[in-house]
Nucleic acid binder design. Structure first.
Length: 257
DNA sequence: ATGCCCTCGCCTCGAGGA
């Protein structure tokens, strides 16, 4: 089973790119972030025509998350994290697909640091930790996938020294991610590529793509039984090189059934 | 310290992104 996460940066503006990549990669499950589309404008028909059932939580202009399942209908189990005002921001959706629980999440950016947006990001991580602990305790095979808006270590940043006071790399946020991992989750990409520089995002600015000045911020966290079945974890870097593409590349894992 | 680029809305600039 192939499971992907992709911050599309506007699902309608990116529809042709998304469909081209779906056709090429043929993932079984896809978590999308940054739909930037209200529900009534979500391109459900085009995605269904490509062979995918879908659940989504949209929002006008910003945020928005969706879960796609090839030749299946994802069974939605939750939208919004417990204790978070999900009517205001669409950042979390969860569904059962093929006997797995898939959580698609989009963590707040948190900049500028310091400030209320940064504090909100830390609170969001706390709520994610609380819910993730419950998911682990349930014993279900769980995959947390999405844009975590954190580079976990120096190896995940092209220039760590320049990012010390950025909300994506502040020690408080890296600690929050580390505490999440310490619950018993496996960072799939890092687990299979322990020493490799791997990026999933390259800013549109300053020729970051051409310079390969990237960040690894899109992650898969696997519950223990899923981690044991992990076969591959890859970034579709070439998609970042397409015309009119997202600033993120799709990331995917393959697990044994 | 700021712009650099890009998306969206109903809009011709601002907000947000990371």
């Amino acid at each position: 089973m192939k499971i992907a996460t992709y911050n599309v940066n506007g699902v309608n503006g990116r529809l042709s790119i998304l469909l081209r990549w779906l056709e090429e990669r043929q993932p079984d499950v896809v978590c999308l972030q940054e739909l930037k589309s209200p529900d009534e404008k979500f391109p459900r028909k085009a995605i269904e025509a490509a062979g995918y059932g879908v659940v989504y939580q949209g929002q006008s202009r910003w945020n928005g998350v969706a879960i796609l399942a090839r030749d299946a209908d994802p069974i939605e189990t939750r939208r919004g994290l417990p204790g978070y005002d999900h009517d205001r921001e669409s950042r979390y959706i969860e569904a059962a697909v093929n006997g797995h629980l898939i959580a698609c999440l989009y963590v707040p950016n948190g900049n500028p640091y310091p400030g209320p947006k940064f504090e909100n990001k830390l609170r969001w991580y706390q709520r994610l930790q609380d819910h993730a602990a419950e998911l682990l305790a349930s014993g279900a095979p769980v995959i947390l996938a999405g844009d975590f808006n954190v580079m976990p270590t120096d190896l995940d940043v092209y220039a760590p020294e320049r990012w010390q006071n950025d909300a994506l790399f502040r020690v408080e946020v890296r600690d929050a991610y580390a505490r999440l991992i310490a619950q018993g989750w496996t960072d799939a990409v890092r687990h299979l590529h322990p020493n490799e520089r791997i990026y999933t995002f390259w800013d549109y600015l300053r020729h970051r793509w051409e310079r390969d000045a990237g960040l690894r911020i899109d992650h898969f966290l696997l519950s223990p039984d899923v981690a044991q079945r992990l076969k591959k974890a890859e970034v579709d870097r070439h998609v970042r090189g397409w015309e009119k593409t997202s600033d993120h590349a799709p990331v995917w894992i393959e697990i044994k059934p």
